[in-house]
């Protein structure tokens, strides 16, 4: 091992013409990363400062550095005010449901799809089921509105024709958790299925033949062969999803509900909350504290779940 490394090391010390050229090629991308990823990361210091526009002519960073440190004061309200607790509760509850369903449904669907007699029918369905993924939430908002509009929507028309009272959908909180969960799965199922289906098609067919000869039923084949072979992909998707545990889809919770204030108690998830902070307060230090917690906890969750997976099954870890 060491002998092999030695000549390499000597080479590494010299900066070749090739390196200069590759650096020139990648310079724009590095600048992009600095501007659009690392500047905002530096700006996260805001969470620990009482940010004020000290000198309007100078940039954000100047004002940021000159602002006074406040320690963890910005974080206090998250734990003391009622809205903080609601935001945390809603974000976690929705995401736990989303993560579980976001794995169970696509895995189940792709297992079912791989069993269809007609592959062409399966392919057509898959293409159609992928369609919602390409619709923005703004467009989905109008899809939903066509059905739920209180005076003209299809569902209320049907309810009235059946002799029932119409529902003012955008005011009633009790229906929305179910609607939001349905929409998130509806939009994501096509996307989720792609990766799992690719894994299933990659499985060696002889395994199933051998199992069949041994008398295994189709169900046993699915649980004893297909699922175990999909394990590492499922775990990878799970780890990636864990990072999203403290994020919320702003489009889903704010656009689709048309920003309705009466639905506040079921839609006020973290990104909606931060957005409102930015739009309503001139110096949103608290919003930035929330954003800081969001980033740190999200990063921690990815690393933690990866670490746990590594302990349990080293093969499946991603980092």
């Amino acid at each position: 091992m060491e002998n092999q490394n030695l000549p390499k090391k000597r080479k590494r010390d010299r900066w070749a013409k090739r390196d200069t050229e590759l650096t020139i090629l990648t310079l724009p991308t590095v600048i992009w990363y600095i501007c659009f990823c690392y500047f905002p990361m530096f700006g996260i210091l805001m969470a620990f400062k009482n940010y004020k526009m000290i000198d309007g002519t100078k940039s954000f960073f100047y004002n940021l550095l000159k602002s006074e440190w406040t320690g963890f004061k910005n974080f206090e309200f998250l734990f003391t005010s009622g809205s903080g607790a609601l935001v945390v509760k809603l974000t976690l509850l929705y995401n736990i449901v989303f993560i579980i369903l976001g794995i169970v449904i696509p895995v189940a669907l792709s297992l079912m799809m791989s069993q269809l007699y007609s592959k062409r029918f399966g392919k057509t369905c898959q293409t159609l089921m992928f369609l919602p993924y390409f619709m923005s939430w703004v467009v989905v908002t109008y899809f939903v509105f066509a059905f739920l509009s209180p005076d003209k929507g299809l569902i209320n028309t049907i309810l009235v024709n059946l002799g029932k009272d119409p529902v003012s959908w955008y005011q009633e909180t009790k229906y929305w958790p179910a609607i939001l969960i349905f929409l998130s799965q509806w939009k994501g199922m096509g996307y989720g299925m792609v990766v799992y289906l690719a894994t299933i098609t990659g499985i060696d067919n002889t395994l199933y033949e051998a199992a069949m000869i041994d008398g295994a039923t189709k169900f046993q084949q699915a649980t004893k062969i297909t699922l175990p072979l999909m394990k590492s992909v499922i775990i990878m998707m799970f780890i990636l999803a864990m990072g999203g545990l403290v994020r919320s889809d702003f489009g889903l919770f704010y656009q689709v509900t048309k920003g309705s204030d009466s639905l506040y108690t079921v839609t006020e998830t973290i990104d909606v909350f931060i957005y409102k902070m930015i739009k309503t307060q001139p110096n949103p230090n608290m919003g930035s504290a929330a954003a800081f917690l969001q980033s740190v906890v999200g990063c921690g969750l990815i690393l933690l779940s990866n670490w746990i997976v590594k302990k349990v099954d080293n093969e499946s870890a991603i980092i």
């Binding site: 590759l22 990363y33 700006g43 805001m46 931060i274 902070m277």
Partner: peptide, 29 residues
């Protein structure tokens, strides 16, 4: 594989996958 800055660049590309500045500071930047 023989590019000298590969290690640093990998880190530059990897960190934003797990960590971000959040909406507020992004907005200000």
């Amino acid at each position: 594989s023989n590019y000298k800055l590969k290690g640093i660049y990998s880190i530059i590309v990897f960190i934003p996958m797990v960590f971000g500045g959040g909406l507020v500071s992004t907005y200000n930047v």
